[in-house]
């Protein structure tokens, strides 16, 4: 496995209650303005009832995905950025230097996870920095620390893979081979039924 020491997020979709404490902790810690979310909780819904003989059986499912920047091994945003405002540290953290950003929003187009967010007030792109200051001081990212369900964790990707079982691509996330996200997700049991055209993001306006 390449770059076993890079930092990654773990997310347990089966345990997530969708409370969005992670989202709010991130906004609070990074002082993000209205409309800017570095971590977003997507609510995926789908399915329907089906008749089996005299019974109506539920095939309805709903699950949450808490997602920030995945600090990809092959970040599309970094390749797109014309000013080299986006760099990748040796520990895998993809870092945005807003002082160099020209505000062209090309990274926003390129990222399949919608991670870079535009700050209207400053005219620059912003994104999750993995709370590098906190983990540098031995702490945890704000989102991980805030989760009441312990659905979020972080660490070196190889350590997370030893600790948890999971995948790096569930619906509606794009194919992981595109950017190689530093992400491990334990899927909700409903995720196996989710399909393009039959499932949808219920809170797309919010995210």
């Amino acid at each position: 496995m390449s770059e076993p020491d890079r930092y990654a997020f773990y997310f347990d979709s089966g345990s997530c209650s969708g409370c969005k404490a992670c989202q709010m902790a991130c906004k609070d810690k990074n002082d993000l303005g209205p409309g800017i979310l570095w971590r977003k909780v997507y609510e995926i819904v789908g399915g329907s009832w089906r008749r089996e003989g005299g019974l109506w059986v539920s095939g309805v499912y709903a699950y949450n995905i808490s997602l920030a920047c995945n600090h990809c091994e092959d970040p599309a945003c970094l390749k797109a950025c014309p000013t080299k405002a986006i760099t990748r540290r040796a520990d895998g953290i993809v870092f945005m230097d807003v002082r160099k950003c020209v505000g062209c929003r090309y990274c926003e187009w390129s990222c399949p996870y919608g991670a870079p967010r535009y700050d209207d007030r400053r005219g620059v792109m912003t994104k999750c920095d993995f709370c590098a200051d906190l983990i540098g001081a031995g702490g945890r990212p704000a989102c991980v620390a805030a989760c009441p369900m312990r659905a979020l964790d972080f660490g070196r990707i190889e350590d997370l893979r030893e600790k948890y079982e999971g995948t790096d691509s569930i619906f509606p996330l794009p194919v992981a081979s595109t950017t190689k996200p530093s992400l491990l997700i334990r899927p909700h049991r409903g995720a196996g039924q989710a399909r393009e055209g039959q499932s949808r993001i219920a809170n797309s306006e919010e995210t």
Binding site: P82, K100, C101, V102, G103, C104, D120, G123, V124, M125
Partner: peptide, 10 residues
């Protein structure tokens, strides 16, 4: 551009 002053960096 949101921040044209950085256009020289492109």
């Amino acid at each position: 551009l949101g921040n044209p002053l950085n256009a020289w960096r492109t």
